[in-house]
């Protein structure tokens, strides 16, 4: 059974009698145990999509199924399976302490304080909230509050966890901890996780697959490894000695599609090729002929950030 199925999901808002398509005919499925990243620029429709899955927003058209049941039909079923940390919301009760917050959210899920005692201790230690257990949430730093919000979602012990911007406000060390945590297969134990974030490094290290949306539509839905192999070895960087006569670069630019970055000693020629490596051979031949010394040649490994940027610029399949 799939964890989440979105069928033809569309949400149209009416603002001042004007119709705005927040999400437009979105289709995807998420398998049990998958960790999926949701990427997109601000206003792409990520939060609308997340809130629609959580049944906090009713879609205009389309259907969402969570563990086989339509999400709007049975809240008992839905919230037994889904917990979420929503971006921009406080998610936690400011007047309660860290421990009281955890007990409160476990209670909302129907777990008594005593039945989650062990989990509470585990999470307090893991997220370094132990010393702050008796501090009211309003006195915590932004990062600590974010950690607490995530912990409150985890304490609900749901099969599906949705995190909207989970690394917001976290320091570097904590972000690493969070990465380690989501990479820990023992904890995940078949859980499905959907993470929306602008933090590409986090998504790349944690997720198996990314869904990229822009202007309410999915522009890419693929395994990160596949996306990387698709882009691999298509970008090269040739480092040459900088010539005394810089006009030579104009000639190179006329003959080849390259980006040139130059300083006094070295010059980097960046070349993006199609499937063939012929342009790389040609440019190497040419720079040798005009007397430039080739210092090194790199095949640039694409990272998710580069892939995302290219997809956003719509250059990828050109």
């Amino acid at each position: 059974m799939k964890s989440i199925i979105c069928k033809n999901l569309t949400k149209v808002y009416e603002v001042n009698s004007k119709k705005i398509n927040a999400i437009n005919a979105i289709n995807f499925e998420i398998d049990n145990g998958e960790i999926v990243g949701l990427l997109g620029p601000n206003g792409a429709g990520k939060t609308t999509l997340i809130k629609s899955i959580c049944n906090l927003i009713t879609p205009t058209f389309g259907e969402i199924y969570v563990k086989g049941v339509k999400n709007s039909v049975n809240s008992h079923h839905l919230y037994n399976y889904i917990s979420a940390v929503l971006e921009g919301n406080r998610n936690i009760l400011w007047r309660l302490t860290v421990k009281e917050n955890l007990e409160f959210f476990a209670g909302l899920q129907g777990y008594s304080s005593s039945s989650v005692k062990r989990e509470i201790e585990y999470f307090l230690n893991l997220f370094q909230l132990d010393e702050k257990r008796d501090i009211e949430a309003r006195f915590l730093s932004r990062g600590m509050q974010q950690k607490l919000a995530i912990t409150c979602a985890l304490i609900k012990k749901t099969d599906i966890i949705i995190l909207d911007e989970p690394t917001l406000g976290l320091d570097v060390e904590m972000e690493w901890k969070m990465r380690e945590f989501f990479e820990n297969k023992d904890f995940l134990n078949g859980r499905t996780i959907l993470i929306s974030s602008h933090n590409m490094n986090f998504i790349e290290s944690v997720c198996d697959r990314v869904i990229i949306i822009n202007k309410g539509s999915i522009i890419e839905d693929n395994k990160i490894s596949k996306l990387k192999s698709f882009f691999r070895a298509k970008e090269y960087e040739i480092v040459v000695t900088t010539p005394s006569d810089l006009k030579i670069f104009d000639i190179i630019k006329e003959k080849f599609e390259v980006n040139i970055k130059s300083d006094t000693n070295i010059t980097k020629l960046s070349l993006i090729t199609s499937d063939s490596i012929q342009p790389l051979i040609d440019i190497m031949k040419f720079v040798s002929e005009i007397g430039l010394n080739i210092i090194s040649i790199y095949s640039l490994e694409p990272n998710l950030e580069k892939i995302y940027t290219k997809l956003m610029k719509n250059k990828v399949y050109e």
Binding site: C54, S75, G88, N89, L93, L108
Partner: peptide, 18 residues
Amino acid sequence: RAGTLEQIYMTPLGFNTI
């Protein structure tokens, strides 16, 4: 106002029950 309404809404026993 506090931003916690949606979290409280997401209880398996339902919004009306809570």
